[in-house]
Structure formats: C-alpha cells, structure tokens
Amino acid sequence: MTTLTTSSTGRRRVVDAGPPKPRGGLPGKKIAIMGAAYLIALIFITPYLEMFLTALRPVKEGTDPTIIPKHFEWSNFTSVFSGTSSFGTNMRITLEVAFGATFLVLLVALPAAYYTARKKFRGRKAFLILVLVTQMFQPTAMVIGIYGEMRDLGLINSVWALIMVDAGFNLAFAVWILSAYFAAIPAELEQAAMIDGATRFGAFRRVTIPLAMPGIVTALIFTFIAAWNEFIVALTLTTSPDKAPLSVAVDNYIGQYTVDYGHLFASTVIATIPVIILFGLIERKVVDGLTAGSIK
C-alpha cells in the first residue's frame, strides 16, 4: 500500500506540468490559441490531403490546374488491393518489421538505458558515445556490408533481417532518450519503494516505467515510424517488390515511362493511416493520462 502511495505522490511531483491553471482564462486568448493551432494543423495535413486528392484524380486530368478534380476515381483505392497487386503481403511485412523492430529496440534499450542512467560503471561514457555514433551513419553507405551479412545468414527476403537492422539503427535514439528520462527520475523514488518492500524490478516497473512513459513512448514511436518507412535497407535485402515492405513496393509505381500517381498516392495514404491511428491511441493514453488537469 505504502508503495502505491509513494509512487503516486512521486508521479504528481514530477509530471504535473505547466504553469498553474488560471481559473477561467480569457476566451479571446483561447480562441486565438485554437485558431493558430488549427491553422498549423491544417498546414501539416495539407500535403497529405493533396496526396489523397491526387489519388482520386483521373489520369486525363493529370495536368489540370484545379485543386479538386472534376471526377473522382475511387478505383485507385480499391484496385491497390486487387488483382495482381501484392499490397496485402507488403502490408503484412511492414507490420511485422515495424512491430518487431520496436519490440526488439525496447527489449534491448530499456535495460541498457536504465543501467547507464543509474550507474557509473567503467566504460559507461564509451558506451554512450558508441551509441551516439551509431546514429550518425548513413544507411545508404552501409548496405553493402549489411547485404553480405544477411546473405551469409540466409536472411535475404526475411523480415528478421529488416527487424534487426531497423532495430540497430534506431537503438541509439531509444537508449539516449530513455537514459535521459531515467536520469531525470530521482533514484530516491525507487529506493523509497524498495524500502517499502518492493523488489528492484518491482520498483522499476511500478515507479520508474510510468514516470518515464513519455520517453518510452517517444522512443517507441520514433522506432516504429522509422522502421515503417525504411526504404534503402529494405530495398537491398529483398529481391522483388512483392517480397518487400510497402515502402519499397510503392516505389514500383514510379515507372520507366510513366508514374502511376493514382496508385502511388493511394497506397501511401493507406500506408500512413495505421501509423497515425497508432500514434493517436498512444498519444491520448499517455499524454492525457499523465498530464490530466495539469496543463493550462
């Protein structure tokens, strides 16, 4: 019981954020904030709305100077799934790679970040620098070596290869951000929980993890999105677009003589929606859950 109390006070202390709530803020100011936020939101969504509209645009209207097409060709959205298209397979591979890489990153990064945040051990700094350095490489420069490794392991066209490489590439960010969050959480909170009888792991799980949630979620989303959209490694490690994730398969619509913008953008829109939904789910749960009532 005491543990719970401690952790909940601890949570409030650290997470409650922002200036204190002004009682009955000015409606004019609120409207201005709303207006500005909506405008920015609109700007950020515009290219994707245009993508959606272009996906509906018939080929014949391809160069018409109109923002809204005269006719809507919904078939681009349905035919992406039909006939000879490998969209289903591509989507499955993308999902497997993104979830797999995210899981692997958390599995590997959580202990590493926690340990480096809590302990000063020999080689700690070297480790952190090593991690930072890995983020500095351009994947395009490394595909030759990666291809060789995966070929030797027989992992060409395997999602495992993509999971491992994507996890490796994004591990650095996860370790860094998690380590920063863990370091910001006072060790006393855990110690208090442990005095109250919690195990170290229990303290970690019930005290540290919830407090570091914004960091965990950021790391999680960062990895997930990077893996979801990764192109160059997936292109190298798959032998054909129908065995590749969406990012590579979609590229196939850019042909030698024409670009099939309808299908290119339709499949991109479809491929982006799951990420936004996932983000929406997590964002609401975490941000709102942790900051309820504390933000002006």
Binding site: L42, S247, V275
Partner: peptide, 11 residues
C-alpha cells in the same frame, strides 16, 4: 496533434 504528426508518420 494527430494532424501535426502526419509528416512524421508518412514516409
């Protein structure tokens, strides 16, 4: 916030 995330979510 969902809209804000779009450029990050898309490739």
């Amino acid at each position: 916030r969902w809209a804000l995330i779009a450029p990050w979510a898309a490739s």
